[in-house]
């Protein structure tokens, strides 16, 4: 059953940046977009299981730190080789100063 989990506080993530969030054996990436919104994706790149948390957020793209593959973190769409497989995304809500993600 889907559950909302508190991932972090809103000011834990700078604008145009991301952090890692681990929960129940799974790892996620939580993003703070330049327009002030929050998003969540699976934490590991679909190319070679490298964590995206050391990558670079540019606008609405996250660039993987290993081979510079890129995803649109709003949709998970793979945007630049060598990534070909889309990233899983998760619903996010902000309640007060807290960011929640909905995990299955």
């Amino acid at each position: 059953m889907p559950t909302w989990i508190r991932a972090c506080a809103t000011d834990d993530i700078d604008e145009e940046d991301l952090i890692r969030f681990d929960h129940a054996g799974a790892t996620y990436a939580i993003y703070h977009s330049p327009d002030g919104k929050f998003f969540a994706t699976a934490g590991l790149c679909t190319h070679e299981n490298v964590h995206l948390c050391d990558g670079l957020v540019m606008g609405h793209l996250i660039e993987c730190p290993k081979h510079n593959g890129q995803f649109d973190y709003r949709t998970g769409e793979a945007k630049r080789a060598p990534v070909c497989v889309n990233l899983r995304t998760f619903p996010v809500k902000v309640d007060g100063d807290d960011v929640y993600i909905e995990v299955a």
């Binding site: 190319h47 070679e48 290993k66 081979h67 080789a81 060598p82």
Partner: peptide, 10 residues
């Protein structure tokens, strides 16, 4: 070569 270079980094 885009792909061989990815392998070189891995």
């Amino acid at each position: 070569w885009r792909w061989s270079h990815a392998r070189h980094h891995t």
